[in-house]
């Protein structure tokens, strides 16, 4: 796997002040969870064309979270890939193909 993405991530996050910014965002993450019902209502009401491409070994965001999109948006397409959270680091070609196929419909 290419080290470039992780090394550049680490460079940006090591800059002065970066940790304070990130701690503020960690602290605000609950605002996202509080909006989940509103997001789900949007999916239900508007039924946007929806493709989930999901690294199935992500330790943070689990596959049931991908499957759940189909509950509110039955036409959602859900594809799993044998990778982790940073799925583009290993599966950019496969994900690009899934996007092309999905948006060509």
């Amino acid at each position: 796997m290419s080290p470039d993405g992780q090394n550049l991530d680490n460079y940006y996050m090591a800059r002065p002040g970066a940790h304070d910014v990130q701690l503020d965002l960690f602290g605000d993450y609950k605002s996202n969870v509080a909006l989940y019902p509103a997001f789900q209502n949007y999916f239900r009401t508007h039924q946007p064309p929806f493709l989930a491409v999901w690294g199935k070994n992500d330790p943070f965001f689990l596959p049931p979270g991908a499957e759940a999109f189909k509950r509110d948006n039955p036409k959602a397409v859900v594809k799993f890939f044998d990778t982790g959270h940073f799925a583009l680091e290993t599966h950019a070609a496969e994900i690009a193909n899934a996007i092309r196929e999905f948006l060509a419909r």
């Binding site: 909006l35 989940y36 690294g55």
Partner: peptide, 30 residues
């Protein structure tokens, strides 16, 4: 998803790559 809530008419499609919106997608580790 906030942009979509505010302007649903602007969104032509959504591709979520490990982008979560459901409680069951949140792990204890997460």
């Amino acid at each position: 998803f906030r942009l979509a809530l505010k302007h649903p008419e602007r969104i032509t499609a959504i591709i979520s790559q490990n982008g979560n919106a459901y409680e069951e997608g949140l792990s204890d580790a997460g």
